[in-house]
């Protein structure tokens, strides 16, 4: 097996007494993979993004980028990591300095990383990046942030990331503040970048519909732990963990044949604090059993390409180091790996 692009080994992040992420093992193969990280607020998904980007050093555990621990990288390695792994943030309003023209966020990284051989080359690279995200360079360059719409500003951030020819883009809720009609367009452009340029994506979101459309695989986090992970066709199409089931059944679909049931009033997550050493989801789980209160479920592997932390599943336990094999291309269900325009359902 080839070295994963990025790998998290037993990552734990605490803020004082609060544990934001716990015992997290994750692996992204070096094959232009697309991985969604989904969960509610407080599930640890933004913390995970910041750890992957190297913005924070986890309290415990290792983050390996192409086999190298980012905590012990040399200056040069760290510099390359900073170029090859690019963020896109949620808020397309706060990332701009209102006093600078938008060109500033595009020319600065080119200069810092020495990626352009002169002003003409820089201009050509910027125009190419802007065109890739559906912006017309002559209508965009030279403008101030306030002269552009939220969608345009967010596309500039995507263009900025692309400009650096990264291997991986970590996008934290990139379209949650953009109107629905634009959201689809931006996500489609991101998918094109993955297909045409081979850029891997980690897409952090609470929206399972866009995760399904954009990504091959998904990790569902609950209170800092992986609840379920695998191919989107499996996890969203036929969720096994009661929490994933709850998330999927709560999606508001514009489909009257799939109206929300009026049955289950699950407790508010804030009211459902974990009371014991058991499963974190037990206080909200409709299928809770006695052992869920006393023992934390271990990670199992019901399918080659799926992992699950639930006492309801009786499959063999998964060791931390086996996680890479779950996410490797070999384990993928066949139909699911055929992504693209005419992608089919598994």
């Amino acid at each position: 097996m080839t070295t994963p692009l990025i790998e998290l080994r037993g990552v734990r992040q605490t803020y004082g007494a609060f544990t934001a992420l716990d015992r997290l093992h994750l692996s992204l193969p070096d094959t232009a993979a697309t991985l969604a990280i989904a969960g509610e607020s407080g599930s640890g998904k933004t913390t995970l993004a910041r750890i992957m980007l190297g913005f924070i050093k986890p309290s415990e555990g290792q983050v390996l980028y192409r086999g190298k621990d980012i905590a012990t990288m040399t200056r040069t390695e760290r510099f390359d990591f900073g170029r090859e792994v690019q963020p896109i943030f949620q808020d397309p309003f706060n990332v701009f300095n209102p006093f600078y023209r938008v060109d500033h966020v595009l020319t600065t990284p080119l200069r810092k990383f020495g990626l352009a051989s002169g002003a003409d080359d820089a201009r050509a690279k910027i125009e190419d990046a802007l065109s890739r995200v559906g912006l017309r360079p002559k209508d965009t360059l030279g403008r101030f942030p306030h002269e552009l719409s939220g969608g345009q500003r967010q596309r500039i951030m995507v263009a900025r990331a692309v400009l650096l020819r990264p291997r991986l883009i970590v996008a934290d809720e990139p379209v949650s503040m953009v109107d629905a009609s634009l959201r689809a367009t931006i996500l489609d452009e991101i998918r094109d970048l993955n297909r045409d340029l081979g850029i891997a994506f980690v897409y952090i979101t609470h929206d399972l519909t866009t995760a399904f459309q954009l990504c091959d695989d998904i990790v569902v986090l609950y209170q800092g732990r992986v609840a379920e992970a695998g191919a989107v066709e499996h996890v969203i199409g036929a969720p096994q963990h009661p929490y994933s089931q709850l998330l999927v059944s709560s999606i508001p679909l514009p489909d009257l044949s799939r109206r929300w049931g009026d049955d289950d009033m699950q407790a508010d997550p804030a009211q459902a604090a974990r009371t014991s050493a058991g499963c974190r989801f037990a206080p909200r789980c409709p299928q809770v059993m006695d052992r869920c209160w006393s023992a934390d479920p271990t990670m199992t592997r019901p399918l080659p390409h799926r992992m699950l932390a639930c006492h309801l599943d009786a499959s063999a336990a998964l060791q931390g180091n086996d996680v890479a094999t779950v996410f490797s291309g070999q384990a993928r269900p066949k139909a699911a790996s055929a992504s693209g325009q005419q992608g089919t359902k598994a």
């Binding site: 519909t209 399904f212 459309q213 999606i251 679909l253 489909d255 992608g343 359902k345």
Partner: peptide, 8 residues
């Protein structure tokens, strides 16, 4: 423009 969860 709304993405669904039935087919990509």
């Amino acid at each position: 423009s709304l993405p669904g969860i039935d087919a990509k």
